[in-house]
Amino acid sequence: MNTLLDFLRKYNYFFVFILLEAVSFVLLFRFNNYQGSIYLTGANAISAKIGGLYNEGVAFVGLRNRNKELTERNIILEHQNNTLRETLARLGHVETTTEHNVREVLRDFNLIPATVVSNSAERINNYLVIDKGENQGVRPEMGVIGGGGVVGIVYLTGKNHSLVIPVTNRKSSISCRIRGGNYFGSLQWDGKSFLRAYLDDIPRYADVKPGATIETSGYSAVFPPGIFVGRVLSVGNSKDGQSYRLEVQLGTNFSSLRDVEVISTPYKVDIDALLDSAKVKDEADQLNGLGL
């Protein structure tokens, strides 16, 4: 305290100087228009500068929160964008002729729309997984069709997902016929191109030309008759030379498959029940010695 007082006493003249200079400058700015205007301009510029710096500082301090908000907003918008894109893709889909025809054929059938969630299009034994399962009414051995025609057959079902054996799987064998001429064969895949499959066992007397339409025969109860499968690309001989082997250009592009429909056949249960009862009858006949 004493030191402070000593300091003030020792340098009192300096405070007098500051005070009197302040008075002088107040007089200067107050009563001289020229210096006053310069002072005002300068003071305004300085206060504007300081205000600008302060605002910049506040903005900088607020950047963290701003950044967080923007990130959240970005995530929300991204999500919205994806949803809208999906909707747009669904709505913007133009129905093809094949789709139209297939729909005509399937008017009496109950179709379960589904989306392919997993699609292996690289291996020999390809499988598709669709996002509908038992809860939605999908059962094994139901047919699956897409915009380009036949896709495959349901193999296994889960609660909400199902495994589909597509045409492009070597296990797949779908009964087909040539439209207009009742020649039947089974559609097989050779494991090479996703765009082609082969229709075996077409009798040699059949009148087949490249470009003919291949459709389902309806014999297997999986698919109703008349669903588009593909077109004949070329006609060749089978290994044993007894029949034709048709190279078929598939209507479905399996590498970009997305929206499919499962055919819930109302007749299949009937047919299966009939077959089962026939089997039971056979066994009963055997037991009775009638089968001998």
């Binding site: 100087f17 009197l20 200079e21 008075v23 002088s24 400058f25 107040v26 007089l27 200067l28 700015f29 107050r30 009563f31 001289n32 210096q35």
Partner: peptide, 11 residues
């Protein structure tokens, strides 16, 4: 010249 000479002479 209010303030001019006062400021200079005080300094």
């Amino acid at each position: 010249t209010p303030g001019i000479a006062a400021a200079a002479t005080t300094a």
